[in-house]
């Protein structure tokens, strides 16, 4: 069974072209800036938005066959734009076993699949699906192993996974969230750049922090630690971009 929270059509920020993103529930990291809090727990949860009469139930058990028709609805849009399906979360790789069938079936239908992951799972999880997908959108949060630990991750595991994927000729797009008090100072950036360069990375996507997730935290009755964190200014962003650009080809997801 697949444990998902939502299917989002016309996703334009999760990889190439027009994509449909399936959000999976359950995550093994605890990033305090996370903007999809409803996907952290594998359990069902309620979102009660102020402007809606009824609370939304978030989380459902489904199967590849059940969601496949909806994922194929937009095929003409994928074809015209070079897009496809993105599996995101939460941490979709925690459900690696379960998504194999889905990835296989999408491939049979000539639909490209990208996996959006933070990559903190054993490499054999990746090996199960490598053969059926176009590549990974691989989140990389910090080059500081202590900080990775703080959010529940493991720098060494992440790095090894990236290297193995590259060695296996799998497309990996490194995506770095830009979090002001976590990884956006000069020292952190330099460390990230050096580290990624050392494991063979040449191009990165930068994802500037935004606090639009606050509505979801409110709807879940949770406090959002980052609710007062303003987005990076243009100048800050430009500065960060320049630092990364010394090492990599840089794309900013605005």
């Amino acid at each position: 069974m697949l444990n998902i929270s939502n299917i989002q059509h016309f996703s334009v920020g999760d990889g190439q072209g027009i994509r449909t993103t399936v959000f999976f529930k359950g995550c093994n990291l605890r990033c305090p800036w996370c903007h999809n809090p409803e996907t952290i727990s594998p359990e069902k949860c309620l979102l009660k938005y102020q402007n809606k009469a009824k609370p939304e139930v978030c989380g459902r058990q489904t199967t590849a066959d059940e969601i496949l028709p909806e994922l194929l609805e937009d095929k003409i849009f994928y074809e015209t734009s070079g897009g496809g399906v993105t599996l995101s979360g939460g941490e979709v790789m925690l459900q690696a076993e379960a998504i194999v069938e889905l990835c296989q079936k999408l491939k049979q239908n000539n639909v490209s699949v990208l996996i959006d992951t933070a990559g903190c799972v054993p490499y054999n999880y990746f090996e199960k699906i490598n053969g059926f997908i176009t590549g990974y959108l691989f989140d990389f949060k910090t080059a500081n192993s202590e900080k990775y630990k703080q959010i529940g991750g493991n720098l060494q595991l992440v790095s090894e996974n990236i290297q193995k994927l590259i060695a296996d000729n799998i497309v990996v797009r490194i995506r770095i969230p830009l979090i002001r008090d976590f990884n956006a100072d000069e020292k952190s950036i330099k460390d990230i750049c050096e580290h990624l360069k050392s494991i063979g990375i040449t191009e990165v996507d930068l994802l500037p922090f935004h606090r639009l997730g606050v509505a979801k935290y409110n709807a879940m009755g949770l406090d959002y630690a980052y609710k007062d964190q303003p987005p990076l200014s243009k100048a800050e962003l430009k500065n960060i971009e320049q630092q990364y650009a010394k090492y990599f080809k840089v794309n900013i997801e605005r």
Binding site: V12, G17, I18, I76, F77, E79, T80, S81, N251, R254
Partner: peptide, 18 residues
Amino acid sequence: TPEKRKKLAALVRAYFKL
């Protein structure tokens, strides 16, 4: 943005194909 405009163009073209 230049990158997103390509997606909008593709959106329109696919819609017209439909």
